[in-house]
Nucleic acid binder design. Structure first.
Lengths: 348, 348
DNA sequence: CTGTTAGCGCTTTCAC
DNA sequence: GTGAAAGCGCTAACAG
């Protein structure tokens, strides 16, 4: 019955040490303005009791929960888990906790998460918006008064900083590389064509292909393995089959690769392959797969750093909202030349 | 200067609605025992003000932060990120937040994380201990009075439930399968041989190999790609080269596979390969790699469910500590037969 | 049904 | 140097 499990409190520490709560509080917060003896005594009691200050009480006073939220589609996705890892490191360096929530790209869930995080008084938010153009999301963000940083996909038209990959340029570079190899019919495969990132990459593909006077071969139906099979077979058996494949995402690249393997189509001899977004085994498979690599870890780190920059600015100077103007940070991609595009890298 | 950014409070809602704080509070908590008109009016004010209750204040009263902590080596690791994803889903279902911290297998960092989580009054903890036998960790866990569930690696000798993979049996099954194929010299490759999971897998390997009267060929030096190369070349050029490779972890499997590919060694004709722990592209590479699959997602889910079971038990009945006895839940692995071990699966 | 009131644990003036 | 006391926002008796 007796709930002895309760944590010891500051006043208990004070009582046992024979001092006032003020002094005890001072000891906890650095021990300034406290005589050496008192300090030692109080510290002793704290240690004995295993006292840990209650942040809820502190938050209640100081308006700082020392928690930041991260809202991503999925954390099982290597792209986002890498971002999360980086963000968590930055959070820790700033003595804060990282709270992770997932949306699975559902706008509804996203709003819920946002609400929950607000309820818990997160100091700031990092979010990969399910829908960049969602009005509900923008309204929500406009309403809350804490710093928000968007990653991977920008929040259009809102007072948030966005940290994103230069998808357009990355895709453009990729296609130009393929063109450089001499391919004339470059097909573009993808799924989830409504996502911001995918749209940008398609734009990059179109631009490059059109600038070179090559045909624009896009198939946005490749949502799963079966679809990849259908799509590729159709392309291969068409009157004018493509000589290169540009896949717009991780999964699609894998599906395409696997399908080609199954069909016994030689890569890159019969058809070349270049994918957007690197993945762990891209270098291990035969042939190794050339990709456009995103600065994954950097995205998470920069986003978190920007967030704390704002948070700290708010702590020192005026209100956190001050001097908070929208910005968009675009990070460069990198073309990793492996074998599938026709390159013969000396080092795999 | 005016910090108008402050969230509206309950009393403000009450005042604007012309009611007492109790009534306002009741409205927030379901609206029972409140007249319909009052209820509507208060709700209106809440909506207008965009009022959100302050959980810090609630926590301060009720001793429930509705946050659970997850301490893992790394979240960029697919094993743990999948666990995290599952755990986060369960947390959400229980109206709680998941706080993720990473240790990178450093005991020191682990203790720090534990402390931080305690400070924030997490309701419960899920942890993948850096060192199963760490005394400091056990002491720490003994000191705190919240439920703790260990995953992947058990915390020996403490009042925590452990949810782990049956590493021993999984490895044993794997080797028996290899033996079934007729391989006589099965080498076991791994790194991080001090980890609990790896030890168990080695135990399984030994047992199976010895029971069959086969030689025990273990190399625990395969920490990176270079080491894999060295190890495999050494094995291959030895007087009696192995005819099968059993790799104890994800990374090692990949390193081994890649090395064999580079050396042009045919799999499984010249040497078979079977790895512990599945990974995304294991089925995409040629030959596809047979593996022992862990119930990754299940581990995270079960651990979280167990945690909330205890938490809920505590909410209803007596203290959370009551009826909390150590237990160990062992989840079964599954042999995924692909091509690298010599099997010819009909469906890849 | 509804309001008053007393804290939860902590920080912070403001006196001594 | 030190302590008393006033709340931070909320919930829960305890009266009306």
């Amino acid at each position: 019955m007796t709930r002895k499990s309760t944590h010891p409190t500051l006043s208990e520490v004070a009582r046992r040490a024979g001092v006032g709560t003020t002094t005890a509080s001072r000891v906890i917060n650095g021990g300034h303005r406290v005589s050496p003896e008192t300090l030692a005594r109080v510290r002793g009691v704290i240690k004995t009791l295993g006292y840990i200050p209650n942040p809820a009480a502190r938050t209640l006073k100081g308006y700082q929960s020392r928690m930041i939220g991260l809202i991503v589609p999925s954390i099982a996705d290597s792209f986002f888990s890498s971002c999360a890892e980086a963000a968590q490191a930055v959070a820790r360096a700033n003595d804060s906790l990282l709270i992770v929530t997932t949306t699975h790209n559902a706008a509804q869930t996203e709003i819920e998460n946002l609400t929950v995080l607000m309820r818990h008084r997160a100091d700031g938010l990092i979010i990969a918006p399910a829908d960049s153009r969602s009005q509900a999301l923008r309204d929500m963000i406009a309403r809350i008064d804490i710093p928000v940083v968007a990653i991977d996909r920008p929040v259009t038209d809102a007072r948030v900083i966005s940290v994103i990959t230069d998808n357009f340029k990355g895709a453009h570079d990729a296609v130009r590389h393929l063109i450089g190899h001499g391919y004339k019919r470059i097909a573009c495969l993808t799924g989830e064509s409504n996502l911001y990132t995918i749209c940008e990459r398609m734009r990059g593909y179109r631009k490059a292909v059109e600038a070179a006077g090559l045909p624009c071969l896009v198939d946005t139906s490749v949502e799963d393995f079966q679809a990849a099979g259908r799509s590729i077979k159709r392309l291969l058996t068409s009157a004018k089959p493509p000589d290169a494949l540009f896949t717009l995402k991780n999964r699609t690249t894998i599906y395409a690769f696997e399908t080609l393997q199954k069909l016994g189509i030689s890569i890159p001899a019969r058809i070349a392959l270049l994918g957007f977004d690197d993945f762990e085994l891209a270098s291990a498979v035969r042939p190794s797969i050339s990709v456009i690599q995103q600065p994954v870890e950097q995205i998470g780190r920069v986003a978190a750093e920007l967030l704390f920059e704002k948070l700290l600015g708010g702590r020192d100077g005026g209100s956190p909202a001050r001097a908070w103007r929208p910005r968009k940070i675009t990070l460069e991609t990198k073309l990793i030349q492996r074998s599938s595009c026709g390159c013969s890298p000396s080092v795999t």
